[in-house]
Design a protein around this nucleic acid. Structure first.
Length: 219
DNA sequence: CACCAGGGTGGTT
DNA sequence: AACCACCATGGT
């Protein structure tokens, strides 16, 4: 399965996703926590509330009481958990001198730093790396695993999927677009019919856009 | 009414 | 290492 081919086919079908419009890096980071297991519209309400109160910096967020923070982000769901996680992240950033401290790190160092925050797992860390810091990182999520499974018929460790994509595409723009496209494809398309998720590569759902012989090409 | 959404953690087997 | 309950709101 070639990530570049997948990127090109999905892009041709769904178009540019213009994902994660945010005013600054910390807004992306907060959004990445708030969207965990949550529909984006609900996370966006919480982000808007934080923005409206001008709380979207590490220092301002740390200054909020837990109760105030919980009240502001309530529409995003699991708000007691997320309030704690946002504070953990903001506090960790304050500890390294703010966003600049994170931007000064190499991508692998930044990734370790983010993963050390209680409440930031691999998916959230990679989303922050690619969408907030514009690093070449690929977000492996449930859609990507399912697509891989259906295209190849086998399982693969998250790390292998991630490195495969990162080693092939190499730019944050392409890797961020690929993840967004996979999500767009995964949610809008054939949610739980096992035979359908691979249609973009098989060419059988695409109405003449994709030739049927452009399917497998192992990396 | 059930089920899901741009997950992660902590506990149990 | 593989499961599992839990978190909790808003939309369909």
């Amino acid at each position: 399965m070639n990530p570049r081919l997948l990127h090109d086919l999905l892009l041709a079908r769904y178009g540019p996703q213009a994902w994660w419009p945010a005013e600054d890096a910390f807004e992306v980071m907060a959004g990445a926590v708030l969207v965990q297991n949550t529909a984006w519209d609900n996370a966006a309400r919480a982000v808007a509330a934080l923005r409206a109160g001008e709380h979207l910096t590490p220092d301002r967020l740390v200054a909020l009481s837990l109760g105030q923070l919980q009240r502001l982000i309530r529409p995003s769901g699991t708000y007691r958990v997320k309030a704690r996680r946002l504070k953990n992240l903001a506090l960790a950033l304050v500890g390294i001198g703010g966003i600049a401290g994170l931007e000064g790190m190499s991508t692998t160092t930044a990734r370790r730093f983010l993963l050390a925050v209680d409440g930031v797992g691999a998916e959230t860390a990679d989303a922050i790396l690619v969408y907030a810091l514009h690093r070449p990182a690929f977000v492996v999520d449930a859609y990507a695993r399912r697509l891989w499974r259906r295209l190849t018929g086998s399982e693969a460790a998250d790390g292998l999927l991630r490195e495969g994509a990162e080693n092939t595409l190499r730019t944050s723009a392409a890797l961020g677009e690929l993840h967004a496209l996979i999500v767009a494809h995964g949610k809008q398309h054939c949610g739980r019919q096992p035979r359908c998720a691979g249609c973009v590569l098989r060419g059988d759902c695409v109405r003449g856009q994709v030739s049927a012989d452009s399917r497998y090409s192992d990396r």
